[in-house]
Amino acid sequence: MRRILLRRFAQIIPLILGVIVLNFALIQMSPGSFLDVMTAEQQVSDPAMIERMRVLYGMDKPVIIQLLKYIWSVLTLDFGYSYRQNETVLAVIMQALPATVILMLASIAIALLVGVLAGVVAAVKVNTLWDNLISVGAVFFFAAPTFWLGIMLMIVFSVRLGWLPVGGMRDIGVDHGVIGIALDVMRHLALPALSLGLFYAAMYTRVMRASMLEVFRHDFVRTARAKGLSGAQVVVRHVFRNALLPVVTLLGLQLGTVLGGSVVIETVFSWPDIGSLMLDSVMSRNYPVVLGVLVLSSLIVAVANALVDIAYFRLDPRIRAR
């Protein structure tokens, strides 16, 4: 088990190297010089600074050396310096990271909870009104852009009904200990997580429904019924876990999309995460931050992906044997 874990996490390394190379290629393709990019076109005039970067990135060396130097600097977590925030890029990104991870996890939780539940109901009550309602709902939520859904939810729940905050992560002045803060964050989290989560919930609903119907046709379900198990027991103990496997696979494949989606959603709800940082950096051409975000967010996805694989591994004993 430990060896498999290690091997799975070792696979992340070439991926991250790939992302760094991709980054480097993008910098090379950009219209300005490497130095322009890394100083975010801030017209750094301090000759000592320019000289330091020249050496750091090997500007006078061939491209391949530059690439190796760049890889080395990224691997030592040196993504450069953000003049805009007057901090290292790493520090800037790490400040925004927790909010991103919270939003991502909350969205995935909603997507799994709603999607799996709706898929199970639709499959158990296949070809009934319930099934049709759920399927139509899934088709619609699967087509709605998440940011637009977010705005519409905001119009209903924040503007019209006034139940939930319009944006941000915490209210000013709310300070009732850890629980109070957690509740406050959850109130702010509800709409963004819902708008992002419902899109994926729609996808999981469709996959879960199809997969449940598929599993229902397997022989072992008949065996389970022949044992005298009730309908609910058959569904929960025998169908559900097998049907979950394709959903888990899909989840692993989509972590990157979820993280990307949170970037868009956060601008709707001014959730203070990597999205706002990214957007701000793109607008102000603060390239070191943009590239750092790309590498670090890829790293998050790669790690999360490995975790999902391990979850799959625990769910399906057949994989374990291999």
């Binding site: 022989d219 065996t223 389970a224 019924r225 022949a226 044992k227 005298g228 876990r241 399906d316 057949r318």
Partner: peptide, 29 residues
């Protein structure tokens, strides 16, 4: 009723199927 029948299945009347490899749930011991 289906509920009554469930108490008969596996207790008074049991069944063995053709293909043992597919008759057992792959994810349970």
């Amino acid at each position: 009723s289906e509920g009554e029948m469930q108490r008969v299945r596996g207790k008074d009347l049991a069944m063995i199927f053709q293909d043992p490899m597919s008759a057992l749930n792959p994810v349970l011991t």
